[in-house]
Amino acid sequence: MLSISQTIRVVILAVMLFPQCHEKQKLSEPLCLPFRLINDIIYVRIGINEIDSLNFIFDTGAGSTLIGLRTGDLLGLTNGKKSTNIGAAGSHPVQIFHGNSIAIGQETIDNISLIKNETELSSALLGERLDGIVGYDILSRFVVTIDYDRSLIELHDFGKYSADSSWHEIKFKKISNIPSISLAFTIDDKEYLGKFLVDSGADANMILGPSFVKDNGIMEEIHNSYSFNSRIGTSNAKTEVVITRISNMKMGKVDFRQVPLALILSNSGVFSLLNFDGILGNSILKRFNITFDYRKNRMFINPNKSIDEGFSVDCLGILFKKDKSDGKLIVQNTIKGSSAEKAGLIRGDTITSINNMDIKDLSSHELRILFRDDGSDITFEYLRSGQPYVVKMKLKALI
């Protein structure tokens, strides 16, 4: 399902591989890797084996390097060792291929194990295929700085990097090759302390897992919320999600208030296997320039130009499914009390245009911006039982 207005993209890769001892790369100068930030996800172009310029998500929540089905076929990777990937909300079968290489500019990283998904990977890139997801295989070999201000990832030699003393240092522990930090936060005047995976592949602010939610009675503490079922992670598993807000959360020296929070209620995937309470997503991380030093288990953060941006939330209230044949959006459900429900949209309605723009020409990123514009007017053209209709509505934040 494509839930554009309610999407939570969480990419956690926890394929159980034999531990690999990665030799640190030697660089005379920092290596620069430009990126695009789309729907709060980092997209880079890297080479795999002999194929250049492939679209990858750069993801600190990726403990292994994942490739999509067609990309694996393009690389000639077939009949690999069968295994299981443990994703954010469930598991799914994969194949493992050892002895590959990653190319970043003129630098090559050898001895890479690739995890081939048995389906294609979903992407916010209009007209472009997402080839894969990479994280630990780069982070383990370099000191890595993600400069969101310049849309640039810098790779530094471990022996030559010197941290800027003005940046705030945070120690982390690694869980399945993913950094984990402790964060204190408040919900309706009640304080909590949790262990959060630092996941730049999560299109979210903060996420709490089902065990933490149940053990701490979170559902009894929240008052302003809405819920829906969504498919998340590389397994595309379906799970129940509740959206609410955190009153206060502090990261480094920065206090955030009224932060959107997702509660995952289905106890499956990595939430049922790994020892952590939640996920700190890229909608928070992008507000800092961040350096990761995996050798010393530390990260450095420095507020960037996005630090004071407001937190956008869904203002429409529709779960969509995309028709693969013509690109139109089919309404699967509407959120109770939302602008969409009040306007009369129902399951099965097929959206053909928004504000006189053909739906096929709009990327998920453009739709996200439209659907989060609180107070704006929006016009939908749609089909119901083959008959055309037009509806206008004013968008209002759901929380």
Score class of each variant (00 low, 15 high):
M1I: 12
L2Y: 08
S3R: 09
S5T: 11
A14N: 14
M16N: 15
P19E: 07
E29L: 10
P34V: 03
D40F: 08
G47V: 11
E50S: 13
L54T: 01
N55M: 08
G68Y: 00
G68L: 02
R70T: 13
T71S: 00
G72C: 07
D73N: 10
K82P: 00
K82C: 01
S83T: 03
A89T: 14
Q95W: 05
I96Q: 10
I102G: 01
Q106H: 15
I112V: 15
L114K: 01
I115S: 05
E118H: 13
L121T: 08
S123E: 02
A124Y: 11
A124V: 06
A124Q: 06
E128G: 00
R129M: 11
V134K: 09
D137M: 04
I138T: 09
R141V: 06
V143L: 09
I146N: 07
S151F: 10
H156Y: 15
D157Y: 04
G159C: 08
K160I: 03
S166W: 00
W167M: 12
I170N: 03
K171S: 06
F172M: 06
K173Q: 12
P179Q: 06
P179G: 03
L183S: 10
I187A: 03
E191R: 13
V198G: 01
D199G: 05
S200N: 03
G201W: 04
N205D: 14
I207Y: 08
V213P: 03
K214T: 05
G217L: 02
N224Y: 10
S227A: 13
S227Q: 15
S227N: 11
N229Q: 12
I232N: 03
G233K: 04
N248D: 14
V254A: 02
L261G: 11
L261M: 14
S268Y: 06
L273G: 00
D277R: 05
G278V: 04
I279R: 02
N289G: 04
N289S: 13
T291V: 15
F292A: 08
F292W: 13
N297P: 06
M299N: 09
P303E: 06
D308A: 08
G310R: 11
V313D: 12
L316H: 05
G317Q: 06
I318C: 00
F320R: 04
K322Q: 14
G327C: 07
K328P: 00
L329W: 02
T334C: 08
I335A: 01
K336Q: 13
S339M: 04
K342Y: 00
L345R: 12
I346K: 15
I354F: 10
M357V: 07
E366C: 04
G375R: 09
S376F: 10
S376H: 12
S376Y: 05
G386W: 03
P388V: 07
L395I: 04
L398F: 07
I399T: 14
